[in-house]
Amino acid sequence: MAPELSVTHRVVRWDLPGHGGSAPGLIGPGATVGDLAALVLALADSLGIDRFAYAGVSLGGAVGLHLAVHHPERVSSLAVLCSSAHFNGSKPWEERAALVRRDGLAGLAESADARWFTPGFTVPELVADHRNADPDAYAACCDALGAFDLRDRLAGIDVPTLLVAGRQDPATPPAHLREIADTVPGATLVELPGASHLAVAQCPEAVLAALRPHFGAAPRRGMEVRRQVLGDTHVDGAQSRQTPFTARFQDFISRYAWGEIWTDPTLTRRERSMITLTALVAHGHYDELAMHVRAARRNGLTPEEIGAVLLQTAVYCGVPAANSAFAAAQRVLAEDDGTEG
Rank of each mutant, 00 (worst) to 15 (best):
L198W: 04
R131D: 03
G194N: 09
D149P: 07
Y138H: 14
P185M: 10
A199E: 02
R131C: 03
E179Y: 14
T172G: 01
P174M: 05
A171R: 12
D158Y: 11
V184A: 13
Y138A: 05
T172W: 04
V184F: 13
A181I: 08
R167C: 01
G146I: 08
D182G: 15
A133P: 06
G186Y: 09
D143F: 04
S196N: 13
D152C: 09
C142F: 06
G186K: 07
G186M: 07
D169Q: 06
Y138L: 02
I180L: 13
D134E: 11
H130G: 06
L145G: 01
P135K: 09
G166H: 03
H130F: 15
V164I: 15
G156P: 08
H197M: 07
G186L: 06
A195T: 04
D143E: 03
D143C: 02
R153F: 12
E191C: 02
D149W: 13
R131H: 14
A187L: 08
Q202L: 01
T161N: 07
T172P: 00
D134Q: 13
G186D: 08
G186V: 12
L177T: 02
L163V: 15
A171S: 15
P170G: 11
L198H: 07
R153Q: 14
H197S: 06
V200R: 00
D136N: 14
L150G: 03
L163C: 15
D149A: 11
R167H: 01
A137D: 10
I157N: 12
F148S: 08
A139T: 10
V200L: 10
V184C: 09
H197A: 06
R167E: 07
L154W: 11
I157K: 13
P174A: 06
A175R: 14
A144D: 02
A137R: 10
C142R: 03
G194K: 05
V184K: 11
P170E: 10
E191D: 04
A195C: 08
H197G: 03
I180S: 02
A187V: 12
P174F: 04
L163D: 00
